[in-house]
Each structure stands twice: as structure tokens, then as C-alpha cells.
Amino acid sequence: MAEREGIRVDHTTTSGTFSLDGQVHEVDNNVWVVGDDHDCVVVDAPHDVAEIRRLVGRRRVVAILATHAHDDHVRVAPELAAAVGAPVLVHPDDTVLWEMTHPGVEPDGALADGQIVEVAGIALHVLHTPGHAPGAVCFHAPELGVVFTGDTLFAGGPGATGRSYSDHDVIVDSIRRRLLTLPSETVVHTGHGESTTIGEALPLFEH
């Protein structure tokens, strides 16, 4: 858990399934909550509303931010939004993926490259990083020295690109241009698995 003047990053893991291209996989997803004792944002809403609400506690949720719209990252987003009274924000390039999980239900708002989401006095900078999904984004909190990468960058390499709406060359380009240019000590909080740092990721993309 990272802290700065009352700001903290809380974490939990929820379990469920990921479905795309006619295949279903069991997955464990990270959920990240950023804020102070009063206000917070939720990064991704995978499988379990009750567990996410436990992590949030009594805080006001400013927004539910989707790193991308694969079903294992947004499955309970509308339910969570209704429970906590917060908007769900998704990059519009992921509309096709969102509609697969939530047909007829639109997100409450859009994310855009360069947008700043403010919570508890700090800024989360939206970085559009397509490749794993067309509307994949990362959230960089420079004041905390962290970036939330969803399934764009993992400990060990880039996210998967073997399914529909993904592209290996595009994700590598996104990582090189948008993430590897961040300070090397930046902690990378991922959508699945362990966290890493930008410095640890750099050698993986030297060739």
C-alpha cells in the first residue's frame, strides 16, 4: 500500500471468469482503490460488488474507472455504480467490448487521452494505451509514483494480444511511448498478478 499525506492505494483480488471469442477462462483480477479517508476512485470493477464495497468502506466514490472493457474488468461496474452513486467511465474505443457484457446499458461517461481525474487532491492522468483492447487506458498518479496499467503491462511483459480487437505491435508501441517514458521508479499496479516497476519493465522491450 502506497501512501502520501493521507492518500493511499488499497488493493483486493476478486475471482471470476473472462469470456471472449467463445472461450471462458477462470481469472483473478486486481481491484485498486485510490483516495483518502473521505473520497476515492475505483480502478476496474471485475466480479464482486461486496468485496469492492468492503475495500471502499464509507468513502465517497468519485468515479469507477475502467482500464478497458473486457468483461472481467467491468462485469459488475453498473451494479457497483448504482450501489455507490458513482459514474462508470470507459474509453469510447472500447464500446464494442462494453456492449458484449452490458448490451443496452451505456457507461456514464468517457475517458480520453490526456484527461485528468481528480480525487482527494491528487491527479490521475489518463494515458490511452491501445493494443490489448482498442480503448485500453492506464492511469498515472505522478504524486504517488504509481501507474495503473490494467492488462497493458504486466510483471514480465505486455498483455495478451491473441484475441479479437487486440494487436501485438500496437500494444508494444503503446508501452514504449506512453509507459516506458515514465520515471523508472514508478510502481506498476497491474490488472492481474504482481506489481512491478517501469525500471524492471525496460529491459523487456530493448529489442
Rank of each mutant, 00 (worst) to 15 (best):
D28F: 11
L65E: 04
G156S: 01
E185D: 14
V33H: 05
H47I: 07
D36A: 03
L111I: 10
E143D: 15
G159C: 00
G109F: 10
G16S: 10
D94A: 03
P46E: 05
G109N: 12
I116Q: 15
R60W: 06
I116F: 13
P103L: 11
P183K: 12
G156P: 02
E3G: 13
R59A: 02
H132G: 15
G191M: 02
A2P: 14
R53L: 11
H125Y: 12
V137N: 09
H25D: 10
V88R: 03
P158A: 14
T149A: 00
L182E: 03
L89I: 04
E206R: 13
R53G: 05
E99D: 15
A66D: 11
L180A: 04
G6N: 06
E143I: 09
I64V: 10
V137S: 02
V105P: 00
D39W: 11
H140N: 13
V9P: 04
C40N: 03
F18E: 08
D39I: 10
T17P: 01
T13G: 10
A77E: 03
V96E: 14
W32A: 01
R4P: 08
H102T: 00
R8N: 05
A81D: 01
H132Q: 13
S184C: 08
E194V: 03
N29K: 14
N30H: 11
I116Y: 11
G156W: 04
G157Y: 01
A86Q: 05
V56R: 07
G85R: 05
P107Y: 06
E106M: 15
S15Y: 15
G6W: 01
R58E: 14
A77Q: 01
V76F: 11
L179M: 12
L180S: 06
D108F: 10
P78D: 05
V119F: 09
S174Y: 02
A69R: 00
A45E: 07
R60A: 13
D21G: 02
P107V: 01
I171E: 07
P103W: 04
E194H: 10
V172T: 09
T152W: 07
P158M: 12
I171M: 07
L124W: 07
D151H: 14
T196K: 00
G159L: 03
H168N: 12
G35A: 03
A155M: 13
G156M: 11
R176C: 12
G193F: 07
A123Y: 05
P183L: 10
D113S: 13
V41S: 02
R54A: 14
H207M: 09
V137T: 13
H132F: 13
F148P: 00
C40E: 00
G16K: 09
D48M: 06
V126A: 02
T101P: 08
S195V: 12
D169W: 08
S195C: 10
R58P: 03
A83M: 04
G35R: 03
I175D: 05
R177D: 10
E26T: 15
D71T: 12
V27H: 01
A50Y: 06
G104N: 04
A123T: 11
E118W: 02
H207I: 08
V34Y: 09
